[in-house]
Design a protein around this nucleic acid. Structure first.
Length: 259
DNA sequence: GGTAATGTTAGACT
DNA sequence: TAGTCTAACATTAC
């Protein structure tokens, strides 16, 4: 489930498990996820140490001696740290072995994730035209970036060039909490409504991190645990609606989110 | 067996 | 020009 909260949980996980240990072996198990030249990647990382982590939106950076390993998790990626190869995840695409005998795997069932080597994090963010991180952005910058957009509020929230980190599931949650129909046009929202969206966005993302982005852990008045399988609105019991917005399935409560 | 699934991106279209 | 839609990428589950 890799949106901002998931990737933040991954970041903390790598921080907790994989820093400051020498990497004694690197095996690329599937070259299709590797953006960097495989030989250079293996040569650069072998014998190196993960020193630090940094996250921007859904993008994760792990600091090496003089460069960074970049990770993007696509729709189905996740890191896993483990002790014996029996615990190797099923769709492991990249395996690191540490000097303490533990392993770190980059598991990615659908292979839509990417791993690369980059020189500099800020340069990467600039080159990709990424907006400010959704957790770090302040209110006035948020307003500047969203205000005046022509499209739908849901599309704006998911636009990584405006704000980085929000995807399909969390944009649905933010709009559910804000009681706004996903296809509300941004230009129909006034500044107070946008400020409220800002506050809710921060709150929802922080809750997501606190719940470690595990569906079952979310508060019951969130739409996340109810959005699939013809769920009902946790507030009023109405059957949730489903529409396509920007090509993605959006769930919403037809009673509350009608603007 | 068709459809859809947390992401990104290119190209066609309005 | 900005924004939307569709398809493509790859794999699996319902």
């Amino acid at each position: 489930m890799p949106e901002l909260p998931d990737v933040e949980v991954f970041r903390q996980y790598i921080e907790k498990t994989s820093l400051d240990k020498r990497i004694i072996d690197v095996i690329i198990k599937d070259e299709r996820i590797m953006q960097a030249d495989p030989e250079i990647f293996v040569r650069t990382v072998t014998g190196n140490i993960f020193h630090s982590t940094h996250r921007h939106g859904k993008h994760l950076f792990v600091g090496l001696d003089t460069s960074w390993m970049y990770m993007h998790f696509g729709m189905s990626g996740q890191p896993k740290y483990f002790n014996t190869m029996e615990e190797e995840p099923e769709h492991n695409r990249l395996l690191f072995t540490f000097e303490n005998g533990y392993f770190l795997a980059y598991d990615c069932q659908r292979r839509l994730g990417k791993v690369d080597l980059i020189e500099d994090v800020d340069g990467f963010i600039t080159k990709k035209n990424l907006g400010p991180d959704a957790l770090a952005i302040d209110e006035s910058t948020f307003l500047d970036h969203i205000k005046g957009k022509r499209g739908y509020i849901k599309s704006a929230l998911m636009n990584q060039k405006l704000i980085a980190g929000i995807g399909n599931i969390f944009s649905d949650e933010i709009l559910f909490q804000a009681r706004l129909y996903p296809k509300t046009k941004v230009r129909h929202l006034d500044v107070d409504e946008l400020k409220e969206i800002y506050t809710i966005m921060k709150d929802v993302l922080k809750t997501g991190i606190k719940c470690e982005a595990e569906e079952e852990e979310f508060p019951d008045d969130y739409i996340i645990p109810h959005r699939e399988k013809r769920g009902i609105c946790p507030i009023c019991g109405a059957n949730l609606g489903k529409i396509k917005v920007s090509g993605r399935s959006s769930y919403f409560c037809p009673e509350h989110q009608s603007k």
